[in-house]
Write a protein that binds this DNA or RNA. Sequence first.
DNA 1: CTGAAAGCGCTTACAG
DNA 2: CTGAAAGCGCTTACAG
Lengths: 327, 327
Amino acid sequence: MKPKIEDVARLAGVSRTTVSRVLNNRGYISTETRENVHKAMNELNYFPNDVARSLFNKRTNLIGLIFPTISNPFFGELTFHIENICAKLGYKVLLCNSLNRIDEEEKYLEMLMRNQVDGIIVGTHNRGILNYHQQNLNVVAIDRNLSETIPVVSSDNYAGGETATELLISKGCQHIVHINGSGELETPAKLRRKAYEDVMERYGRTPITYEILEAFDRPSQQEVMSKILDEQPEVDGIFASSDLFAAAFMAEAKKRGKDIPKQIKVVGYDGTETGQILLPELTTIQQPISLIAQTAIDILLKKIEGEVNDLPLEIRLPIKLLKGETT
Amino acid sequence: MKPKIEDVARLAGVSRTTVSRVLNNRGYISTETRENVHKAMNELNYFPNDVARSLFNKRTNLIGLIFPTISNPFFGELTFHIENICAKLGYKVLLCNSLNRIDEEEKYLEMLMRNQVDGIIVGTHNRGILNYHQQNLNVVAIDRNLSETIPVVSSDNYAGGETATELLISKGCQHIVHINGSGELETPAKLRRKAYEDVMERYGRTPITYEILEAFDRPSQQEVMSKILDEQPEVDGIFASSDLFAAAFMAEAKKRGKDIPKQIKVVGYDGTETGQILLPELTTIQQPISLIAQTAIDILLKKIEGEVNDLPLEIRLPIKLLKGETT
DNA sequence: CTGAAAGCGCTTACAG
DNA sequence: CTGAAAGCGCTTACAG
């Protein structure tokens, strides 16, 4: 069996209390005892049991992550950065992919609570659920408005939408269509759409938005792209609210012999590392992914440490236009 | 404070034992008591503390994942599937991105042990480390030979390399170059290279392989691609051991005005969902990612359940050629 | 500088 | 069908 503190104590000829103290570097301990204890720990190849520690400390150093799917490069890279930063700070990451299904999110949330996570970072919607349990739960949202009291970290979606739309207009596009996710989700990403609409109206254009309801289902995605090309034969500009949408549209357009950027110009959103490698020619609005991760963790840790004062409720981080060959 | 079992017991007018029993559905309990207990739990919004449970049960239902980086779509999608399957089976996933740094892996491994994970799925190398602690650790590797006793699940890398190389030859390529990761890693992916070399020799060609040492550093990646084009001016076929490598090469080739596939044909490896969306024109060898995830978990769970008999030590899952426009 | 005792929230033999 | 007691592996006041 795994050695426990008692085994170490016996071998070192001291009490469990003493072993615990050298383990935690707490209280005074003679150098000799300390050395003996360390020797015993090495000999037994002892590792403390963090489950037992957590039970006593009421602290797990566990952060729960609930995202729609880590398969999506944006969430994949976000999760990567979050995990990396957490690891440096001594936190561990429990991963959940809800696929935006409400019932799954509820289950995951309960699971995380049972596991006594110190905090949760959420990238899915479902306003209701969290409120209920919110009691002593430390939560930070990324790009999702969960409730009035939960801080939200996101890229400056409005500026992103504005930049994208203005770029297309400045390039001479006359018939610009926007592709967005489901309008039912209460997300700041709605601001991308709002900005698009505002800019369009400012220029006297009629905004046209297509929604992709099943963002993670490729066939239904293609269907929408195909529909756009059918219904908007004059389309010469696309602002897609994700690079994956942009790519899906481009594939469909190419199938129909459309030349990008000559006939249709395309701007995406996200600007992930993976996107940059696989589709470097795409013009896109880049989100500061690692900064989003860092910011979310900063706020979450403050909440965990009980610094509840003047925590910002909404943080918008700057986006960056990456000019490619699709515009 | 969070309610505990004692609070429920008091409210329901029974003992903690009884509450625990209805919680775990163990032993006989009168319907009446059961209902009372449930009522009390609802009233208090009680959730059992899994940390305490784990301590007693010596079972955490936690699976540790150590991968180089979840940013890479292959590992991202693999992790997604693993997490999904685990969730259905009542397991939770603790995520670690080692970036292939040995010291990080060692730290992560210790962290996972301290947290009493029931098992670990590893997608990084570093043979030595695991052996040492291997004692009561349940480990399954994905695409990495960690030691003689740790089962390895991977795609049929040899068949993949063979298929890719033969395709390029059948398309008339005369000067085929292979791009692989670091040759220092003890991975079954070496078989992709071996297959390439075998096929080349079978056809009387000289195999030429370039290695990318820093797989996660874009500039150094581009450097190698540039070097290939400099040193192999006659190259007309590329077999890259990942889609990201393939894309990086294609970008560099396009910069130099090379036409793909007319002047150079390219075959990648992985065939991730993300890759299919962002770079659908790439011909590639698709790994059965969700099957790899399922298989790894099957084996891991058997190990966890103590079924040590006749566990396969090496499983090769079938690959699939996805024909695109780059060949 | 060190140890005995109590307790973190749960579960499970053992009695009744 | 139900409860009192012991224990999972650790930590921390409290004594000495």
